[in-house]
Design a protein around this nucleic acid. Structure first.
Lengths: 332, 332
DNA sequence: TTGTATGCGTTATCAC
DNA sequence: GTGATAACGCATACAA
């Protein structure tokens, strides 16, 4: 690995000059620039980003912390972020937080330690206080899918409550009155917000929300499966179920079929997220669109704008969900 | 940010001593160790991993390059890798190669520049020659889902050809003779290997493989959709279709239904990969298991063993696929 | 426009 | 067991 020393020697100039042509800030004469460039070519020189970031305290890389590295939502999110950042010449370091407070703090510290210029955080378990405190430090970050009033500028979130409202309201409009709900872990903000929206819609129709029709699950296929089975076993009547994400909806539809119920004729199913596969499920899943990729891009834009002073279109901080009507819900 | 200087000053010892207690290699007296530890606590000292890796030329982080950050396969892969590495105290830097040679080389250089101790590469477009050359450099790497004879020790791959064979053979055993095939991009090794396996099975049954029943697609849902439509339009008879991955199978099943065909009664569908959602499709998808998460873990093990000298169970270099029989195929 | 000197926060090689 | 001191590869204020 050639160093800047060897380049300067070969080019017959000083260290500083080599550094200058690399960074292109100050003016260098055409001639010396060429000499240096040639020397770099000849030596196949690659600057050490480590040394560079030690000296300049800027790494041109941003850290991303997501709950999991797998799953359609996180995948789309990372994808959106990376795309936006990469075209701006920035790079991405990714860690997983596993929805666990200790693990999430670990991840944040790791990313900070790696000299990331900024952080994009999808954290679920860490407290608001910790993040508010973090906002006072000199480590810039943007929160994704989370809203904390005190640091709202650092938040890019989905109006989950309205999403939950839209989902249930659609069912109500189509005549459903007995509506079961399979939720994600209610300690997660998005899960509880979506459920709140569900209750909003219900009360708008004068229906008292019945917690006996609530099943708290885990946002995973198998959880939706289990949810339907359990709800059915209660023998409480319901004509429709809203699942707090599409994966659970997939599990729910399967479990319903396994029990001999037809979707949507015997039971209607509503999802949430609008993952790619939702339109390929059978029946095609009615759901609520969560524009997570766009939100990822927006988070990246925020960073480009606020940290790297790049000009960017206006930042949207809260995104609105939209109902996506397909085949998994029928009219009563 | 406190530095090692401040710690040494507060503890009343030298730089070197502080460094020693951090790294725990050489012996330090109980007393000074305590002093130093206390000083670190008091200052909330966090060593700079950047400076550390500049000085030691070791970053305790491994670079991962995948084609995309989204998608069930890459997600599981990254997840498996991260899990294994994290428990060993190593960290992960991720970049996307987008199945494009230039982009993949970029990614590799970025990861090398970031001082990764080793690389885990899922590359599709880069030539064998480049990788063989890279193997001669001092940057250790392991290839995942790719086999190059000259550097087989650096490869962890799936026997894709056998997988393709298993898929088609299962259809043949169940009486199917006219079998269509929706492939991934044939310039990708896994796609072409799977198709080769398909041909193997066919010829084993004395059937000459008919390229008119081949549709080369893109490994995506929409591609499977398009594939079925196109194949149907040829009016060539076929009772089954094997899709080179589950996502295309999802698209194919949907397209078939949209055309009024029942799966599996009118047409049988076989997938490949066994993504999580395969068992939640309707009908539940018969497919071939691609143990990608285990392969990710294995890649991580290889690195732990060969780069970090950790003791690891024996390394498996080529994984064998297995048929997963579900409901999307019927007997003729 | 170019060169010199110093600093960035560690590790590592010597001595003591 | 502990302490100086020189790398590590680059950026940058200050001079020239």
């Amino acid at each position: 690995m050639a160093t800047i020393y060897e380049v300067s020697a070969l080019a017959g100039v000083s260290l500083a000059t080599v550094s200058r042509v690399m960074n292109g800030g100050t003016r260098v004469s055409e001639k010396t620039r060429d000499k240096v460039n040639k020397a770099m070519e000849d030596l196949n020189y690659r600057p050490s980003s480590i040394a560079r970031s030690l000296a300049s305290n800027c790494s041109n890389s941003v850290g991303i912390l997501v709950s999991e590295l797998h799953g359609p939502i996180y995948g789309e999110m990372m994808s959106g972020i990376e795309k936006q950042l990469r075209t701006a010449g920035k790079h991405v370091i990714i860690a997983a937080g596993h929805s666990d407070a200790v693990s999430e703090k670990d991840g944040i510290e790791f990313l900070i330690d790696r000299n990331c210029d900024a952080l994009i955080l999808h954290v679920e378990a860490i407290s608001d206080e910790y993040l508010i405190e973090l906002a006072k430090s000199k480590h810039p970050f943007i929160l994704i899918n989370r809203y904390i009033p005190q640091i709202s500028d650092n938040c890019i979130s989905l109006n989950n409550r309205r999403g939950g409202y839209l989902a249930t309201k659609a069912l109500l409009e189509h005549g459903h009155r007995d509506i079961a709900y399979i939720s994600g872990p209610l300690w997660k903000m998005d899960a509880s917000d979506r459920y709140l929206g569900h209750q909003d819609a219900l009360s708008e129709y004068g229906i008292t929300c019945n917690d006996t029709l609530l099943f708290e699950s885990n946002f995973q296929e198998e959880g939706g499966n289990e949810g339907i089975s359990t709800l059915l076993d209660t023998h409480l009547p319901f004509s429709a179920v809203v699942c707090a994400n599409d994966e659970m909806a997939a599990g729910a539809m399967q479990a319903a079929r396994d029990k001999g119920l037809a979707v949507p004729n015997d039971i209607s199913v509503m999802g949430f997220d609008n993952i790619l596969l939702a339109q390929y499920m059978y029946p095609k899943l009615s759901t609520v669109n969560y524009p997570v990729k766009d939100m990822g891009k927006m988070a990246a834009s925020w960073i480009l704008k606020n940290i790297y002073q790049a000009s960017q279109p206006e930042i949207t901080h809260v995104f609105e969900p939209e109902l996506v009507w397909r085949d998994s819900v029928n009219s009563l």
